[in-house]
Design a protein around this nucleic acid. Structure first.
Lengths: 200, 200
DNA sequence: GACAAGAACGAACGGTCGTACTATTCTGGC
DNA sequence: GCCAGAATAGTACGACCGTTCGTTCTTGTC
Protein backbone atom coordinates (compact mmCIF):
# COMPACT_ATOMS: atom_id res chain seq x y z
CA UNK A 1 0.00 0.00 0.00
CA UNK A 2 3.00 2.25 0.48
CA UNK A 3 4.39 2.47 -3.03
CA UNK A 4 1.06 3.09 -4.65
CA UNK A 5 0.14 5.86 -2.23
CA UNK A 6 3.46 7.59 -2.82
CA UNK A 7 3.05 7.77 -6.58
CA UNK A 8 -0.60 8.68 -6.16
CA UNK A 9 0.43 11.67 -4.08
CA UNK A 10 3.12 12.61 -6.58
CA UNK A 11 0.53 12.46 -9.35
CA UNK A 12 -1.90 14.69 -7.50
CA UNK A 13 0.78 17.17 -6.49
CA UNK A 14 1.90 17.50 -10.07
CA UNK A 15 -1.72 17.49 -11.19
CA UNK A 16 -2.56 20.53 -9.09
CA UNK A 17 0.49 22.30 -10.44
CA UNK A 18 -0.38 21.51 -14.05
CA UNK A 19 -4.08 22.24 -13.71
CA UNK A 20 -3.23 25.64 -12.25
CA UNK A 21 -1.57 26.40 -15.57
CA UNK A 22 -3.84 24.84 -18.14
CA UNK A 23 -7.07 24.43 -16.20
CA UNK A 24 -8.87 21.35 -14.97
CA UNK A 25 -10.30 20.50 -18.35
CA UNK A 26 -6.98 21.24 -20.02
CA UNK A 27 -5.39 18.71 -17.73
CA UNK A 28 -4.50 15.69 -19.80
CA UNK A 29 -3.70 12.17 -18.72
CA UNK A 30 -0.91 11.77 -21.25
CA UNK A 31 0.79 15.02 -20.36
CA UNK A 32 0.45 14.39 -16.64
CA UNK A 33 1.89 10.94 -17.17
CA UNK A 34 4.99 12.19 -18.92
CA UNK A 35 5.30 15.00 -16.37
CA UNK A 36 5.46 12.46 -13.57
CA UNK A 37 7.68 10.18 -15.61
CA UNK A 38 5.30 7.29 -15.92
CA UNK A 39 3.26 5.67 -18.64
CA UNK A 40 -0.19 6.79 -19.60
CA UNK A 41 -1.75 3.47 -18.68
CA UNK A 42 0.15 3.34 -15.42
CA UNK A 43 -1.22 6.71 -14.41
CA UNK A 44 -4.68 5.84 -15.65
CA UNK A 45 -4.70 2.84 -13.32
CA UNK A 46 -4.58 5.30 -10.44
CA UNK A 47 -6.94 7.85 -11.90
CA UNK A 48 -9.75 5.40 -12.81
CA UNK A 49 -11.18 8.03 -15.18
CA UNK A 50 -10.61 11.58 -16.35
CA UNK A 51 -13.42 12.98 -14.26
CA UNK A 52 -12.24 11.10 -11.21
CA UNK A 53 -8.76 12.50 -11.74
CA UNK A 54 -10.17 16.00 -11.91
CA UNK A 55 -12.09 15.46 -8.69
CA UNK A 56 -9.02 14.06 -6.96
CA UNK A 57 -6.89 16.98 -8.13
CA UNK A 58 -9.58 19.35 -6.92
CA UNK A 59 -9.64 17.65 -3.52
CA UNK A 60 -5.86 17.88 -3.31
CA UNK A 61 -5.98 21.59 -4.20
CA UNK A 62 -8.61 22.17 -1.54
CA UNK A 63 -6.45 20.53 1.08
CA UNK A 64 -3.40 22.51 0.02
CA UNK A 65 -5.43 25.71 0.21
CA UNK A 66 -6.73 24.85 3.66
CA UNK A 67 -3.23 23.99 4.84
CA UNK A 68 -1.58 27.14 3.52
CA UNK A 69 -4.34 29.70 4.03
CA UNK A 70 -7.28 28.68 6.18
CA UNK A 71 -5.54 26.75 8.94
CA UNK A 72 -2.76 29.31 9.59
CA UNK A 73 -5.31 32.11 9.55
CA UNK A 74 -7.41 30.43 12.20
CA UNK A 75 -4.39 30.45 14.49
CA UNK A 76 -4.61 34.24 14.76
CA UNK A 77 -6.61 35.86 17.58
CA UNK A 78 -10.38 36.04 17.08
CA UNK A 79 -11.91 39.05 15.36
CA UNK A 80 -10.22 41.51 13.07
CA UNK A 81 -6.71 40.04 13.47
CA UNK A 82 -7.99 36.72 12.21
CA UNK A 83 -9.66 38.40 9.24
CA UNK A 84 -6.42 40.21 8.45
CA UNK A 85 -4.45 37.02 8.81
CA UNK A 86 -6.79 35.25 6.42
CA UNK A 87 -6.33 38.01 3.89
CA UNK A 88 -2.55 38.05 4.29
CA UNK A 89 -2.16 34.33 3.86
CA UNK A 90 -4.47 34.40 0.87
CA UNK A 91 -2.51 37.16 -0.82
CA UNK A 92 0.75 35.39 -0.12
CA UNK A 93 -0.69 32.25 -1.66
CA UNK A 94 -1.47 34.23 -4.80
CA UNK A 95 1.74 36.25 -4.90
CA UNK A 96 3.98 33.22 -4.69
CA UNK A 97 1.89 31.66 -7.42
CA UNK A 98 1.01 28.83 -5.15
CA UNK A 99 -1.21 26.71 -7.32
CA UNK A 100 -3.94 25.74 -4.87
CA UNK A 101 -5.82 28.99 -4.80
CA UNK A 102 -5.20 29.82 -8.39
CA UNK A 103 -6.59 26.50 -9.51
CA UNK A 104 -9.89 27.31 -7.87
CA UNK A 105 -10.15 30.65 -9.63
CA UNK A 106 -9.42 29.02 -12.94
CA UNK A 107 -11.69 26.06 -12.40
CA UNK A 108 -14.54 28.28 -11.25
CA UNK A 109 -14.39 30.23 -14.50
CA UNK A 110 -14.04 27.06 -16.53
CA UNK A 111 -16.98 25.21 -15.08
CA UNK A 112 -19.50 27.92 -14.32
CA UNK A 113 -21.52 26.76 -17.29
CA UNK A 114 -20.64 23.08 -17.58
CA UNK A 115 -22.84 20.79 -15.49
CA UNK A 116 -21.34 17.70 -13.95
CA UNK A 117 -19.62 16.31 -10.90
CA UNK A 118 -16.66 18.72 -11.15
CA UNK A 119 -18.92 21.75 -11.16
CA UNK A 120 -20.97 20.38 -8.27
CA UNK A 121 -17.83 19.91 -6.20
CA UNK A 122 -16.62 23.39 -7.10
CA UNK A 123 -19.91 24.87 -5.94
CA UNK A 124 -19.60 23.01 -2.65
CA UNK A 125 -16.03 24.20 -2.15
CA UNK A 126 -16.86 27.81 -2.91
CA UNK A 127 -19.89 27.72 -0.67
CA UNK A 128 -17.77 26.30 2.13
CA UNK A 129 -15.16 28.99 1.62
CA UNK A 130 -17.78 31.73 1.75
CA UNK A 131 -19.21 30.21 4.88
CA UNK A 132 -15.77 30.07 6.48
CA UNK A 133 -15.09 33.72 5.69
CA UNK A 134 -18.49 34.72 7.00
CA UNK A 135 -17.86 32.76 10.19
CA UNK A 136 -14.49 34.40 10.76
CA UNK A 137 -16.12 37.76 10.21
CA UNK A 138 -18.91 36.89 12.62
CA UNK A 139 -16.45 36.38 15.45
CA UNK A 140 -15.23 39.87 14.64
CA UNK A 141 -18.75 41.15 15.25
CA UNK A 142 -18.94 39.28 18.54
CA UNK A 143 -15.60 40.75 19.56
CA UNK A 144 -16.95 44.21 18.83
CA UNK A 145 -14.46 44.84 16.04
CA UNK A 146 -17.20 45.14 13.47
CA UNK A 147 -20.68 46.63 13.50
CA UNK A 148 -23.44 44.40 14.82
CA UNK A 149 -25.56 45.04 11.74
CA UNK A 150 -22.77 44.24 9.29
CA UNK A 151 -23.63 41.47 6.83
CA UNK A 152 -21.17 38.53 7.04
CA UNK A 153 -22.33 37.11 3.71
CA UNK A 154 -21.76 40.47 2.05
CA UNK A 155 -18.30 40.70 3.57
CA UNK A 156 -17.43 37.20 2.39
CA UNK A 157 -18.58 38.07 -1.09
CA UNK A 158 -16.65 41.33 -1.09
CA UNK A 159 -13.44 39.76 0.20
CA UNK A 160 -13.69 37.05 -2.42
CA UNK A 161 -14.14 39.74 -5.06
CA UNK A 162 -11.01 41.55 -3.91
CA UNK A 163 -9.05 38.33 -4.15
CA UNK A 164 -10.39 37.59 -7.61
CA UNK A 165 -9.36 41.05 -8.74
CA UNK A 166 -5.94 40.58 -7.21
CA UNK A 167 -5.37 37.27 -8.94
CA UNK A 168 -6.38 38.69 -12.29
CA UNK A 169 -4.32 41.85 -12.01
CA UNK A 170 -1.34 39.97 -10.68
CA UNK A 171 -1.35 36.96 -12.95
CA UNK A 172 -2.84 38.19 -16.21
CA UNK A 173 -1.75 41.80 -16.27
CA UNK A 174 1.33 41.41 -14.13
CA UNK A 175 0.35 44.70 -12.55
CA UNK A 176 2.94 45.58 -9.87
CA UNK A 177 0.26 47.63 -8.08
CA UNK A 178 -2.03 44.62 -7.82
CA UNK A 179 -1.21 43.80 -4.23
CA UNK A 180 -1.31 47.41 -3.13
CA UNK A 181 -4.73 47.83 -4.73
CA UNK A 182 -5.96 44.68 -3.07
CA UNK A 183 -4.69 45.85 0.32
CA UNK A 184 -6.37 49.24 -0.07
CA UNK A 185 -9.63 47.64 -1.14
CA UNK A 186 -9.38 45.35 1.85
CA UNK A 187 -8.86 48.30 4.18
CA UNK A 188 -11.88 50.02 2.64
CA UNK A 189 -13.86 46.89 3.36
CA UNK A 190 -12.78 46.87 6.99
CA UNK A 191 -13.42 50.58 7.38
CA UNK A 192 -16.93 50.13 6.07
CA UNK A 193 -17.54 47.35 8.59
CA UNK A 194 -16.09 49.07 11.64
CA UNK A 195 -18.41 50.47 14.30
CA UNK A 196 -16.49 53.78 14.49
CA UNK A 197 -17.93 54.70 11.13
CA UNK A 198 -20.16 57.75 11.46
CA UNK A 199 -22.47 56.85 8.58
CA UNK A 200 -25.10 55.39 10.83
CA UNK B 1 -18.15 39.97 -50.72
CA UNK B 2 -21.61 39.99 -49.21
CA UNK B 3 -22.27 36.31 -48.72
CA UNK B 4 -18.91 35.60 -47.19
CA UNK B 5 -19.13 38.43 -44.74
CA UNK B 6 -22.57 37.30 -43.65
CA UNK B 7 -21.45 33.79 -42.77
CA UNK B 8 -18.29 35.16 -41.24
CA UNK B 9 -20.37 37.26 -38.90
CA UNK B 10 -22.63 34.32 -38.12
CA UNK B 11 -19.58 32.25 -37.28
CA UNK B 12 -18.17 34.87 -34.95
CA UNK B 13 -21.51 35.48 -33.27
CA UNK B 14 -21.90 31.80 -32.57
CA UNK B 15 -18.25 31.60 -31.66
CA UNK B 16 -18.60 34.18 -28.91
CA UNK B 17 -21.63 32.34 -27.61
CA UNK B 18 -19.86 28.99 -27.58
CA UNK B 19 -16.59 30.29 -26.18
CA UNK B 20 -18.51 31.89 -23.33
CA UNK B 21 -19.59 28.38 -22.36
CA UNK B 22 -16.50 26.27 -22.97
CA UNK B 23 -13.76 28.89 -23.03
CA UNK B 24 -11.57 30.15 -25.83
CA UNK B 25 -9.30 27.14 -25.77
CA UNK B 26 -12.27 24.80 -25.46
CA UNK B 27 -13.69 26.33 -28.62
CA UNK B 28 -13.35 23.76 -31.37
CA UNK B 29 -13.50 24.19 -35.12
CA UNK B 30 -15.51 21.04 -35.66
CA UNK B 31 -18.08 21.86 -33.03
CA UNK B 32 -18.41 25.44 -34.18
CA UNK B 33 -18.84 24.18 -37.74
CA UNK B 34 -21.71 21.88 -36.88
CA UNK B 35 -23.22 24.57 -34.64
CA UNK B 36 -23.35 26.94 -37.60
CA UNK B 37 -24.49 24.18 -39.93
CA UNK B 38 -21.48 24.11 -42.18
CA UNK B 39 -18.59 21.80 -42.85
CA UNK B 40 -15.38 21.85 -40.89
CA UNK B 41 -13.31 22.74 -43.92
CA UNK B 42 -15.78 25.41 -44.98
CA UNK B 43 -15.50 27.10 -41.64
CA UNK B 44 -11.75 26.64 -41.55
CA UNK B 45 -11.48 28.56 -44.80
CA UNK B 46 -12.78 31.59 -42.92
CA UNK B 47 -10.83 31.01 -39.75
CA UNK B 48 -7.41 30.52 -41.38
CA UNK B 49 -6.18 28.93 -38.15
CA UNK B 50 -7.31 28.09 -34.65
CA UNK B 51 -5.42 30.97 -33.08
CA UNK B 52 -6.74 33.38 -35.66
CA UNK B 53 -10.26 32.18 -34.92
CA UNK B 54 -9.71 32.78 -31.22
CA UNK B 55 -8.44 36.29 -31.89
CA UNK B 56 -11.38 37.03 -34.18
CA UNK B 57 -13.85 35.74 -31.60
CA UNK B 58 -12.11 37.84 -28.97
CA UNK B 59 -12.35 40.92 -31.16
CA UNK B 60 -16.03 40.23 -31.75
CA UNK B 61 -16.61 39.84 -28.01
CA UNK B 62 -14.82 43.10 -27.36
CA UNK B 63 -17.01 44.90 -29.83
CA UNK B 64 -20.17 43.39 -28.37
CA UNK B 65 -19.04 44.43 -24.91
CA UNK B 66 -18.32 47.97 -26.05
CA UNK B 67 -21.66 48.17 -27.81
CA UNK B 68 -23.71 46.87 -24.90
CA UNK B 69 -21.80 48.32 -21.94
CA UNK B 70 -19.23 50.99 -22.68
CA UNK B 71 -20.99 52.99 -25.38
CA UNK B 72 -24.37 53.25 -23.60
CA UNK B 73 -22.61 54.16 -20.36
CA UNK B 74 -20.76 57.03 -22.00
CA UNK B 75 -24.10 58.51 -22.99
CA UNK B 76 -24.86 59.27 -19.34
CA UNK B 77 -23.93 62.68 -17.84
CA UNK B 78 -20.32 63.08 -16.81
CA UNK B 79 -19.22 62.17 -13.31
CA UNK B 80 -20.94 59.84 -10.88
CA UNK B 81 -24.00 59.22 -13.10
CA UNK B 82 -21.71 57.92 -15.81
CA UNK B 83 -19.93 55.65 -13.35
CA UNK B 84 -23.27 54.33 -12.14
CA UNK B 85 -24.46 53.82 -15.69
CA UNK B 86 -21.33 51.87 -16.48
CA UNK B 87 -21.90 49.63 -13.50
CA UNK B 88 -25.59 49.13 -14.31
CA UNK B 89 -24.97 48.18 -17.91
CA UNK B 90 -22.18 45.86 -16.86
CA UNK B 91 -24.35 44.09 -14.30
CA UNK B 92 -27.16 43.78 -16.81
CA UNK B 93 -24.72 42.26 -19.28
CA UNK B 94 -23.81 39.66 -16.68
CA UNK B 95 -27.32 39.04 -15.38
CA UNK B 96 -28.76 38.34 -18.81
CA UNK B 97 -25.81 36.05 -19.43
CA UNK B 98 -24.77 38.11 -22.36
CA UNK B 99 -21.70 36.32 -23.55
CA UNK B 100 -19.40 39.22 -24.31
CA UNK B 101 -18.42 40.11 -20.79
CA UNK B 102 -18.46 36.57 -19.53
CA UNK B 103 -16.11 35.45 -22.27
CA UNK B 104 -13.52 37.93 -21.07
CA UNK B 105 -13.70 36.69 -17.51
CA UNK B 106 -13.32 33.13 -18.67
CA UNK B 107 -10.55 33.84 -21.14
CA UNK B 108 -8.64 35.90 -18.61
CA UNK B 109 -8.58 32.96 -16.22
CA UNK B 110 -7.72 30.56 -19.02
CA UNK B 111 -4.79 32.45 -20.42
CA UNK B 112 -3.21 34.10 -17.40
CA UNK B 113 -0.39 31.58 -17.60
CA UNK B 114 -0.29 30.66 -21.29
CA UNK B 115 1.89 32.95 -23.38
CA UNK B 116 0.88 33.70 -26.94
CA UNK B 117 -1.05 36.07 -29.14
CA UNK B 118 -4.35 35.39 -27.39
CA UNK B 119 -2.93 36.28 -24.01
CA UNK B 120 -1.28 39.40 -25.39
CA UNK B 121 -4.57 40.59 -26.85
CA UNK B 122 -6.35 39.83 -23.59
CA UNK B 123 -3.84 41.91 -21.67
CA UNK B 124 -4.37 44.80 -24.10
CA UNK B 125 -8.15 44.56 -23.78
CA UNK B 126 -8.05 44.43 -20.00
CA UNK B 127 -5.62 47.32 -19.82
CA UNK B 128 -7.88 49.33 -22.11
CA UNK B 129 -10.89 48.51 -19.97
CA UNK B 130 -9.09 49.59 -16.80
CA UNK B 131 -8.01 52.79 -18.50
CA UNK B 132 -11.59 53.47 -19.62
CA UNK B 133 -12.93 52.98 -16.12
CA UNK B 134 -10.22 55.19 -14.68
CA UNK B 135 -11.00 57.87 -17.24
CA UNK B 136 -14.71 57.80 -16.46
CA UNK B 137 -13.85 58.05 -12.78
CA UNK B 138 -11.50 60.95 -13.45
CA UNK B 139 -14.29 63.02 -14.95
CA UNK B 140 -16.11 62.37 -11.69
CA UNK B 141 -13.21 63.94 -9.83
CA UNK B 142 -13.26 66.95 -12.16
CA UNK B 143 -16.99 67.30 -11.61
CA UNK B 144 -16.41 67.34 -7.88
CA UNK B 145 -18.34 64.14 -7.30
CA UNK B 146 -15.26 62.34 -6.01
CA UNK B 147 -12.35 63.38 -3.85
CA UNK B 148 -9.45 65.05 -5.66
CA UNK B 149 -6.96 62.67 -4.06
CA UNK B 150 -8.93 59.55 -5.01
CA UNK B 151 -6.94 57.05 -7.08
CA UNK B 152 -8.60 56.31 -10.45
CA UNK B 153 -6.48 53.21 -11.01
CA UNK B 154 -7.48 51.86 -7.63
CA UNK B 155 -11.13 52.54 -8.37
CA UNK B 156 -10.87 50.77 -11.72
CA UNK B 157 -9.26 47.80 -10.06
CA UNK B 158 -11.88 47.72 -7.32
CA UNK B 159 -14.81 48.01 -9.71
CA UNK B 160 -13.39 45.23 -11.82
CA UNK B 161 -13.06 43.10 -8.70
CA UNK B 162 -16.70 43.68 -7.80
CA UNK B 163 -17.73 42.59 -11.27
CA UNK B 164 -15.57 39.49 -11.12
CA UNK B 165 -17.14 38.55 -7.81
CA UNK B 166 -20.59 39.16 -9.23
CA UNK B 167 -19.97 36.96 -12.24
CA UNK B 168 -18.66 34.14 -10.08
CA UNK B 169 -21.44 34.29 -7.53
CA UNK B 170 -24.08 34.63 -10.18
CA UNK B 171 -22.88 32.09 -12.70
CA UNK B 172 -21.10 29.45 -10.65
CA UNK B 173 -22.97 29.55 -7.37
CA UNK B 174 -26.26 30.84 -8.78
CA UNK B 175 -26.44 32.98 -5.65
CA UNK B 176 -29.65 35.05 -5.81
CA UNK B 177 -27.99 37.65 -3.56
CA UNK B 178 -25.13 38.10 -6.03
CA UNK B 179 -26.47 41.27 -7.62
CA UNK B 180 -27.48 42.78 -4.30
CA UNK B 181 -23.99 42.11 -2.91
CA UNK B 182 -22.40 43.64 -5.98
CA UNK B 183 -24.60 46.73 -5.67
CA UNK B 184 -23.74 47.17 -2.02
CA UNK B 185 -20.04 46.73 -2.70
CA UNK B 186 -20.34 49.29 -5.45
CA UNK B 187 -22.02 51.76 -3.11
CA UNK B 188 -19.26 51.19 -0.57
CA UNK B 189 -16.77 52.00 -3.30
CA UNK B 190 -18.56 55.23 -4.17
CA UNK B 191 -18.91 56.21 -0.51
CA UNK B 192 -15.19 55.75 0.00
CA UNK B 193 -14.47 57.98 -3.00
CA UNK B 194 -16.90 60.78 -2.14
CA UNK B 195 -15.57 64.06 -0.77
CA UNK B 196 -18.23 64.19 1.97
CA UNK B 197 -16.40 61.40 3.73
CA UNK B 198 -15.11 62.58 7.11
CA UNK B 199 -12.14 60.24 7.21
CA UNK B 200 -9.70 62.89 6.10
C1' DG C 1 10.89 -20.73 -2.89
C1' DA C 2 5.90 -20.57 -4.46
C1' DC C 3 2.39 -17.50 -5.05
C1' DA C 4 -1.26 -14.06 -4.91
C1' DA C 5 -1.77 -9.10 -5.15
C1' DG C 6 -0.58 -4.78 -6.48
C1' DA C 7 1.97 -1.46 -9.58
C1' DA C 8 3.55 -0.06 -13.87
C1' DC C 9 4.10 -0.83 -18.80
C1' DG C 10 3.27 -1.23 -24.04
C1' DA C 11 0.27 -1.56 -27.65
C1' DA C 12 -3.92 -0.77 -29.52
C1' DC C 13 -8.85 1.00 -29.98
C1' DG C 14 -12.21 4.51 -31.77
C1' DG C 15 -12.71 9.25 -31.80
C1' DT C 16 -11.65 14.13 -32.37
C1' DC C 17 -8.32 17.63 -32.82
C1' DG C 18 -6.15 21.24 -36.26
C1' DT C 19 -4.73 21.51 -40.83
C1' DA C 20 -3.79 20.69 -45.72
C1' DC C 21 -5.11 19.68 -50.28
C1' DT C 22 -8.70 18.96 -53.96
C1' DA C 23 -13.19 19.24 -55.74
C1' DT C 24 -17.66 21.20 -56.24
C1' DT C 25 -21.23 24.67 -55.97
C1' DC C 26 -22.65 29.27 -55.87
C1' DT C 27 -22.63 34.26 -57.21
C1' DG C 28 -22.14 38.58 -59.53
C1' DG C 29 -20.46 41.43 -63.44
C1' DC C 30 -20.37 41.32 -68.44
C1' DG D 1 -25.79 32.82 -70.46
C1' DC D 2 -20.99 32.75 -69.36
C1' DC D 3 -17.37 32.55 -66.62
C1' DA D 4 -13.79 34.17 -63.12
C1' DG D 5 -13.49 33.91 -58.55
C1' DA D 6 -15.38 33.42 -54.09
C1' DA D 7 -17.63 30.20 -50.96
C1' DT D 8 -18.29 25.78 -49.38
C1' DA D 9 -17.84 20.70 -49.25
C1' DG D 10 -15.07 16.40 -49.28
C1' DT D 11 -11.34 13.70 -48.00
C1' DA D 12 -7.21 12.61 -45.90
C1' DC D 13 -3.42 13.09 -42.59
C1' DG D 14 -0.75 12.87 -38.34
C1' DA D 15 -1.20 13.80 -33.54
C1' DC D 16 -3.31 13.29 -29.34
C1' DC D 17 -7.48 12.31 -26.60
C1' DG D 18 -9.57 8.85 -22.90
C1' DT D 19 -9.88 4.09 -22.35
C1' DT D 20 -9.07 -1.05 -22.47
C1' DC D 21 -6.41 -5.17 -22.27
C1' DG D 22 -2.81 -8.33 -21.61
C1' DT D 23 1.76 -8.56 -19.86
C1' DT D 24 5.62 -7.81 -16.91
C1' DC D 25 7.83 -6.47 -12.76
C1' DT D 26 7.82 -5.73 -7.76
C1' DT D 27 6.51 -6.98 -3.13
C1' DG D 28 4.93 -9.10 0.96
C1' DT D 29 3.06 -13.79 2.98
C1' DC D 30 2.98 -18.38 3.93
Amino acid sequence: MSKGDATRQAILHRGVETAARVGLSGLTIGELASATGMSKSGLFAHAKSKESLQLQVLAQAREEFIDSVIRPALAAPRGEPRVRSLFDHWVTCGRTRMPGGCLFVKAAAEYDDRPGAVRDQLVRDHTDLHETIAQVFRTGIKEGHFRADADPALFASALHSVMLGFYHSHRLLGDPAAEEHARQSFETLLDAARPTSDTN
